[in-house]
């Protein structure tokens, strides 16, 4: 049998109050082993207090070739930013 262990993406919360952040990936036969391996590979120096693993094939990623359609429309919507609005100088905290 020649079957490669599936690939998992590893997300680590470095301390409470912070979000889980993508740290990298690894191979493991199942989720439990992926967690154990993630502990050894990515948190040897107290880098984390919580780990998520998800099998890479379950992630749907946007295609960079569609970046124009996806992200450029936001560029000309300056009215979504506070600086777009003209207020009198007397107004200090707004």
């Amino acid at each position: 049998m020649k079957k490669e262990w599936p690939l998992w993406e590893v997300f680590v919360r470095s301390k409470n109050g912070l979000e889980h952040r993508h740290f990298g990936s690894l191979h493991a036969a199942d989720a439990e082993m992926a967690l154990e391996n993630a502990r050894d590979v990515y948190t040897r120096r107290n880098e984390g207090v919580s780990i998520w693993v998800v099998e890479s094939k379950n992630i749907t990623a946007s295609n960079p070739e569609h970046n124009a359609e996806l992200f450029e429309p936001a560029q000309d919507k300056v009215y979504r930013h506070p600086t777009f609005y003209d207020l009198p100088d007397e107004i200090k905290h707004m």
């Binding site: 490669e4 990298g24 990936s25 050894d40 590979v41 040897r44």
Partner: peptide, 26 residues
Amino acid sequence: LAKVQDEGGHGLYLYSATETLGITRD
């Protein structure tokens, strides 16, 4: 022991970074 384990870890970081280019670990 810790150093040698780190080197194994370095290999694993780099293998998974390389896999993103479309080659498998095997």
